[in-house]
């Protein structure tokens, strides 16, 4: 009983429900590991040790086993991120179209390097592999929004739209 309440403390009812719904599509609970972490991350931005433990317990696996999965994937964050996650494509088409200059512009504008979070917690900058919009390169996503045809000049305007 206390276990359930502990769980609820670490995960919201909606999260638990969403994870349980995912499990219904799968032959066993552990198979929902990645989806479960995505669900929690969508709500909280990242997977804390506490979330990790709670999800592991919900899925009936060890925390270590879940962490092993979490740390394999690029899109599962085991460290806190900023309010907005900016993912800048650095793959070959964007490279040909000058993503290096865009990166410099973003870093200069925000005053942090790739992989870092701005001190005010507004942005986390991450490199991302090809976003599948090569015909509109260079591109990036901020949160779920795809932003195309980037240039160093357009960066300040774009960033000002996210607070």
């Amino acid at each position: 009983m206390s276990e359930v309440s502990q769980l609820i403390e670490a995960l919201s009812v909606e999260e638990v429900d969403a994870i349980e719904a995912e499990i219904t599509h799968l032959p066993n609970r552990e198979s929902a590991a990645i989806e479960a972490m995505r669900i929690v991350q969508e709500k909280r931005g990242w997977i804390s040790d506490e979330s990790l433990r709670a999800i592991a317990r919900l899925l009936g696996m060890s925390t270590e086993a879940l962490d092993s999965i979490a740390t394999f994937y690029n899109l599962i964050f085991r460290k806190p991120v900023g309010r907005h996650v900016l993912m800048l494509c650095d793959s070959v088409s964007c490279y040909v179209m000058g993503c290096d200059k865009v990166r410099t512009a973003v870093c200069d504008q925000l005053g942090v390097e790739m992989g870092e979070t701005t001190p005010d917690g507004r942005f986390t900058l991450l490199p991302i592999v090809c976003l599948g919009a090569c015909d509109r390169a260079p591109v990036m996503t901020i949160d779920e929004e795809l932003i195309t045809h980037l240039s160093a000049d357009s960066i300040p305007d774009i960033l000002s739209g996210f607070d």
């Binding site: 040790d49 060890s62 270590e64 962490d67 092993s68």
Partner: peptide, 19 residues
């Protein structure tokens, strides 16, 4: 066992525990 795992990927593979 369940508390010794492999973490990470590519050339940053770590074999140990979460803590």
């Amino acid at each position: 066992g369940t508390d010794l795992q492999v973490f990470g990927s590519r050339d940053r593979m770590y074999f140990g525990r979460t803590t």
